[in-house]
C-alpha cells in the first residue's frame, strides 16, 4: 500500500505529459481547455481524437502487460515468466498478419484488430486443449511454447510467401508495436476485453500468495488450482490479445515491471499484481512519450523502444541478483 500512491501519482503525471506531447505545438492551458471543453476546432480534434486515445491505450496496455506478467510469474513461481509465454501474443500477431496479407485490414478500419482478437482466441483455445483441464504448470508452459512456435512459424510462412513487398514491410512494421494513429474506436474495442481480463487477474492474489509454497500446499489450503489456472489463462488471453490487437507486440514490459517492483512489495505475489499494473502503465506511457520526443520525425516504434530499454534494465537486475547470491 505504501507504494500504491506514489505509483498512482507517477501514472497520473505521465498521463498528463503524454497528452501534452506531440508534433502540434500547443500550450498546456490551451490543450487541456480544448480537451475538456471540446468543440469542433482543430485543437479539440487533436486532443480528443489523437492524443487522448494514445494516452488511454498506453495506460490500458501497460496495466495489462504489467498485471498479466505479475500473475504469470506468480503462477509459475518463476521471475522469468511473461504474458507472451502462453502463446496468446504470437497467435494474435498471426491473426493481424493474415488480415494485412489478405487485405482485410485495408478493407475496413477494425479488420486488423478483429482478426488479431480471433487469432488470440484460437491460440488460447489451442493452449487449453493442449494443456488439459487438470494439468500442472509444466503442461501449460509446454502448450504455450507449442502454440507460440506454431504461430511464429505460420507468421514467417505468410511473410515468406507474401507476393507483395508492401504488405510484407507493413507486417514487419506492425509487429514492432506502436500506439501512433490509434483512435477512440481502438480504445472502445479493447476496453471490454481488458476490463474482463483485469478483473479475472486481479482476483488471483490470494491463490498466488498460497502458491508461494507450491501447488500441493496451495491446493491443501483450499485453493482450487483448476479454477485459478483457468482464470489466469482467460484473463491473460483477454488483456494480451486485446493489447496486441490494437497496438502490436510490445515486449519486455510484462517481464521487467514485476521484477523491478517485487522488492518494493516485500515479494508478496498478491500485492505485486496491482503494483505491476500501475508500474506497467507508467512504463508504457513513458516509452510512448519517449518515441515522440527522441525521434519525432522518424516514427520510432514503441515495441522497439521497450525492448531497447528493457534489455539493459533486465541485465542490471541479473547482475544484482548474482551479487546477492554470492
Amino acid at each position: 500500500m505504501r507504494i500504491a500512491l506514489p505509483l498512482l501519482a507517477v501514472v497520473a503525471a505521465l498521463f498528463m505529459v503524454s497528452l501534452l506531447t506531440g508534433p502540434a505545438d500547443i500550450g498546456i492551458g490551451e490543450s487541456l481547455a480544448a480537451l475538456l471543453s471540446g468543440g469542433d476546432g482543430p485543437l479539440a480534434l487533436v486532443m480528443r481524437e489523437i492524443r487522448l486515445p494514445r494516452a488511454l491505450l498506453a495506460v490500458m496496455i501497460g496495466a495489462s502487460l504489467g498485471l498479466s506478467g505479475a500473475a504469470m510469474q506468480g503462477y509459475l513461481r518463476n521471475p522469468l515468466a511473461e504474458p507472451g509465454l502462453i502463446g496468446v501474443s504470437g497467435s494474435a500477431a498471426l491473426g493481424a498478419v493474415l488480415a494485412i496479407q489478405t487485405g482485410l485490414a485495408a478493407s475496413f478500419a477494425l479488420g486488423l484488430p478483429l482478426a488479431a482478437l480471433a487469432g488470440a482466441l484460437g491460440g488460447v483455445l489451442l493452449v487449453m486443449a493442449l494443456a488439459g483441464p487438470r494439468g500442472t504448470s509444466l503442461t501449460l508452459i509446454l502448450g504455450g511454447i507449442a502454440v507460440s512456435s506454431l504461430a511464429g512459424a505460420l507468421t514467417a510462412l505468410v511473410l515468406n510467401l507474401s507476393p507483395n513487398p508492401f504488405a510484407a514491410s507493413e507486417i514487419v512494421f506492425w509487429m514492432m508495436g506502436s500506439l501512433a494513429d490509434r483512435s477512440m474506436t481502438h480504445v472502445w474495442l479493447a476496453l471490454p476485453f481488458m476490463v474482463l481480463g483485469l478483473a479475472l487477474l486481479a482476483g488471483l492474489g490470494r491463490g498466488l500468495d498460497a502458491l508461494t509454497l507450491g501447488e500441493d500446499a496451495a491446493q491443501a489450503m483450499g485453493i482450487d488450482m483448476v479454477r485459478l489456472r483457468l482464470m489466469l489463462v482467460i484473463g491473460t488471453a483477454c488483456v494480451v490479445g486485446a493489447g496486441t490487437a490494437v497496438a502490436g507486440a510490445i515486449g519486455f514490459v510484462g517481464l521487467v515491471v514485476p521484477h523491478m517492483l517485487r522488492p518494493l512489495v516485500g515479494a508478496h505475489p498478491g500485492r505485486l499484481l496491482w503494483a505491476s499494473a500501475l508500474g506497467g502503465a507508467a512504463m508504457v506511457l513513458l516509452a510512448d512519450i519517449a518515441v515522440r520526443v527522441v525521434l519525432p520525425e522518424r516514427d520510432l516504434k514503441l515495441g522497439v523502444l521497450t525492448a531497447l530499454v528493457g534489455a539493459p534494465l533486465f541485465l542490471h537486475l541479473i547482475l544484482r541478483l548474482r551479487r546477492e547470491r554470492i
Partner: peptide
C-alpha cells in the same frame, strides 16, 4: 509437503 518450497 516434503518439498520445502518457498518461491519468493
Amino acid at each position: 509437503p516434503q518439498s520445502r518450497e518457498i518461491a519468493w
